[in-house]
Design a protein around this nucleic acid. Structure first.
Lengths: 343, 343
DNA sequence: TAGTCCGTTTTGAACGATCAAATGCTGAAG
DNA sequence: CTTCAGCATTTGATCGTTCAAAACGGACTA
């Protein structure tokens, strides 16, 4: 009921001026300790909260981070990863004094329009991008407008001139660990169930497997024989697993680029060892060993890259006019292997 | 670059006053058509966008809808439903001129604190609640503060005095349809794999199954025999299915309260018919027939209930001081059955 | 002709915060 | 004893919008 406590109310209650209250909250070093205490007590007593709208008006900063929520894929498993990431992002952002604003867009072009719209009206301080693909126009657009942003996902095939902060998970390290784990368990014919070439993420994960087998003495010819490529989805995984099992020298274990493919492989039966990727609920449900991404840490790092850019370079609105944040802010995190029944 | 076009710029460009521009945009009926055209052209030409912060300052409305993003459950399947809902919400809200602001909270108590915090700072115009449970304190709190809100989920066991707008999916109708479908396919021993009694959602879904079997002539004793209750999760589902199959008169089909339980039942093998609930990615992946909630419609209806309350009753800030919106705004939607291989 | 009324447009104030500059005060230097 | 630097605090202006009330001009009435 006693809503709308303004900074003037606090000032009156504490017997000081508005500006002093503002200073206590935003630049305490300017205010004598004794005064600070008195002001803070008044703030407490009245339950004062700075109005974000008023602040934004003067400073140009909204304390909002915009993130896109993707149309839960048919695949849906991707959705899980994003969902957890988003949750972590909300949490970390809150700790840093930011809130997450959602938006959607059907495609890249629509997304650029949405950027423009959001910037005109709500003026988020920064954007978080996910699901980067080859030739993605979004980073370039944001760079050009000098809007701070981070991406969850490395830039794949982008000219090095366009550098920007990103956080990603080292997929190759994940599949390498999975492969090593299978080798240590005695497997010698370890196949890889991956997506068709051309996806940054997919190729990266394949590379970790290939690298590890090669180090263990596998010939390129053998690798090619063990490398199976198909679209995502359990049915495809099942068919692929069958194909690999029906060969002259069948595989005894499979490293998969996704949990859906792994699930399919499991359903093909024959009791081979299978390792998936992403540690989705499906993996948990069916006891599938899977590579797990540290999503909540990814989120934390995203936020800390952003705050460094936003709070470091002297207030957002201004940062945009001077220069983008320093480059070289790239974070690559290691995933971990979650052991379950399947391997 | 040419950012920060203010209403004054537009006014100057069109040769009218600020207020006239404001009127053209917010109350066109007050302005002569000829003037309108001129102003709109200026708006176009300059790319003017009203600053949300400035507007909020004057009107008290933020055009923000706050929604909680839940910590992706261990179960994780619930997360999918919420995820799709959230996506729909973002989309519908955008169409109505609102944006979705995320927040998290560990438990109900923390959530009330977050409400208070958000209301003090960002001042969302409304809240959307999900995952209501028995004795949930959140609706009462919001009602008391006269903050508009909707819930996705019926109020379970709440005194009728506390009425508020909600949208929900008729779970009983879903399981009833599933059961009827199995009956039509010739099944006579149709079990129900549900959660322990005491969950509003779970009991509701069980009721649809029981109702349909009863109508088909089943005795209460038989029902009790076919009704199995266990915690959520595929392993539990598998165990439960085994138990039901090992009885004297084994079931030939199972209606399940969730896809995770259904997945477990499928893994128990023996080729019985299985129907799940929620049509999650897992269901799609393994070819599980499942009851699908119209999540994007749920979202749309939520938004329309909210806008009715917000835009109807004359501006938010004011609505809060006068009275809550009319009650009797309750929407119950029918789910649909998605047929796949499992039944 | 003066007075009213109405539709249209303009003017002034206000929302609540922060910035920039001014003020008062204390103590050390000249 | 004055001057001035430096800290602590206050004052006035401002961000961009909308509300409330005033002003304007033409038509209509008395």
């Amino acid at each position: 009921m006693a809503d709308k406590v303004t900074i003037a109310d606090v000032a009156r209650h504490a017997g000081v001026s508005r500006q002093t209250v503002s200073n206590v909250l935003n630049a305490p070093e300017l205010v004598r300790e004794h005064t600070q205490r008195r002001v803070l007590e008044a703030v407490q007593a009245l339950g004062y909260r700075a109005s974000q709208a008023a602040r934004q008006m003067r400073t140009g900063r909204s304390q909002l981070i915009a993130a896109r929520i993707e149309p839960a894929q048919d695949d849906g498993i991707n959705g899980f990863v994003f969902d957890r990431f988003l949750h972590g992002l909300t949490e970390s952002a809150a700790l840093a004094g930011y809130r997450v604003l959602l938006y959607t867009a059907a495609d890249h072009e629509a997304e650029l329009a949405t950027f423009d719209d959001l910037l005109g009206v709500y003026v988020p301080d920064a954007f978080v991008l996910t699901s980067l693909d080859y030739g993605d126009p979004r980073p370039a657009w944001l760079l050009e407008q000098r809007i701070p942003f981070v991406t969850f996902g490395r830039p794949w095939g982008v000219p090095p001139a366009q550098r920007y902060p990103w956080v990603d998970v080292d997929g190759a390290a994940g599949t390498a660990a999975a492969t090593r784990y299978l080798l240590d368990a005695g497997h010698r014919r370890i196949g890889f169930l991956g997506w068709p070439a051309g996806s940054g993420v997919g190729d990266d994960r394949r590379e970790g497997w290939a690298r590890t087998l090669t180090a263990a003495g596998a010939e390129p010819a053998e690798l090619a024989e063990l490398d199976y490529r198909t679209d995502d989805g359990a049915p495809h995984g099942e068919a692929a697993a069958r194909a690999l099992l029906d060969r002259d020298r069948p595989v005894t274990a499979l490293v998969c680029v996704s949990d859906s493919l792994a699930l399919g492989a499991l359903q093909a039966g024959r009791g081979i060892a299978v390792i998936g990727f992403d540690d989705t609920p499906v993996a948990r449900a069916v006891g599938l060993t899977s590579v797990s991404q540290p999503l909540s840490e990814v989120a934390t790092r995203c936020v800390s890259l952003l705050t460094r850019a936003l709070d470091g370079n002297g207030a957002g609105a201004r940062a945009r006019e001077t220069q983008a944040y320093d480059t070289g802010t790239e974070v690559l995190l290691r995933p971990s292997l979650v052991r379950r029944r399947s391997a």
